[in-house]
């Protein structure tokens, strides 16, 4: 076995332990909690493609999570098809839709891109709230006919974890591949990448559309987890939360956001009962990470695991600088 595959056996063991744990008497409460955490882990991984891979700050990622929730809810309601199939169909529809939205949004830079993503997501959120006939408005959609395997808490617990593992390993492999290097090259120096024939908007548009599809899968799983769809799940707060997770976990490491997504979800849902001010501490930790740990908490771990490409961190000095003001470029 090559040295760089040494982590495989322990990982496989961990995966098996994880799956059989509920049958060995894991507490149903914890099983349920962890299920939610893992789904948020997938959501966080999807946002890492935005912040980590494209280097753009989007405040509208909740839109794609919501697209998964409502898309799957409506599709299952209308056709009664298999839930997992519905999730995949919705993800497949989300990808081109997101590509279109982002091709338009990517005409804008920096803060303007952040703002248009925010506005589009808020617009969708308002539509969902107001289109009562279709979405049930603030009452949400309930009584979704989920496939039986999603009704068994132990399966519901295992499926997202399997998907998360596939996504994390797959994305890390893609990140190291030629395509991944192109994505990173475009992020680090779009002008230079353009000289090699890589169109910034196209490369970022594709990355963002993949990210949205993953977010939609997370949303579909979240629907299965909750059994109902509520507009709050796609509010701006959801978008902020996933951003916090990725920043704290460490943008661009894929693992970091996955772990942070799970961890912060678990903390939030176990601490809100004991400390009412969990969000305050979360905010403080987040601000400190932005200030002092450009690679996130994940950056504190062994380098080989967390930052395999030795790339420059997104949040380092100078990142995004060239896009702050067009006028300044006159002087260069």
């Amino acid at each position: 076995m090559p040295r760089n595959r040494l982590w495989l056996p322990p990982l496989a063991l961990l995966a098996i332990l994880y799956v059989v744990w509920p049958w060995l008497g894991g507490s149903p409460f914890l099983v349920n909690l962890i299920t939610g955490g893992v789904i948020w882990g997938i959501f966080a991984v999807s946002y890492d493609l935005v912040l980590g891979w494209t280097g753009e700050i989007s405040f509208g990622h909740a839109l794609w999570f919501g697209a998964g929730i409502y898309g799957v809810a409506l599709l299952v309601q209308a056709t009664h098809i298999d839930t997992m199939l519905a999730i995949l169909i919705v993800a497949a529809i989300t990808a081109p839709l997101s590509f279109l939205v982002h091709i338009i949004s990517l005409r804008l830079r920096g803060a303007y891109f952040a703002m248009i993503t925010f506005a589009i997501a808020e617009f969708a959120y308002l539509l969902v709230q107001n289109a009562t006939a279709l979405t049930g408005g603030t009452n949400g959609l309930t009584g979704i006919m989920l496939s039986p395997y999603f009704l068994d808490p132990n399966f519901l617990y295992a499926i997202p974890a399997a998907l998360l593992l596939i996504f994390v390993l797959g994305l890390r492999a893609i990140g190291r591949s030629r395509s991944g290097r192109i994505v990173h090259a475009v992020r680090d120096n779009p002008t230079r990448a353009a000289l090699f024939g890589h169109n910034e908007v196209l490369v970022k548009g594709i990355t963002l559309s993949a990210s949205s599809a993953l977010a939609a899968i997370a949303g579909g799983l979240y629907l299965a987890y909750q059994g109902m769809a509520f507009p709050d799940a796609m509010s701006s707060n959801t978008g902020f939360m996933v951003l916090l997770m990725v920043v704290i976990g460490g943008a661009d490491s894929i693992w970091g956001p996955a772990v942070a997504g799970i961890g912060l979800y678990l903390l939030e849902n176990s601490l809100t009962s004991t400390t009412a001010h969990w969000s305050l501490w979360l905010g403080v930790v987040y601000v400190l990470v932005v200030r002092f740990l450009p690679n996130g908490l994940g950056g504190l771990g062994p380098r080989r695991l967390w930052a395999p490409r030795g790339q420059t961190a997104i949040l380092h000095e100078g990142a995004g600088q060239s896009r702050t003001k067009v006028r300044e470029s006159n002087l260069e």
Binding site: I57, A114, Y286, P294, I314, L315, E317, A319, Q321, T324
Partner: peptide
């Protein structure tokens, strides 16, 4: 010199 970091900080 890090507008991205500043943006994220103001959110925090």
């Amino acid at each position: 010199r890090n507008p991205g970091g500043q943006l994220l900080t103001t959110l925090g």
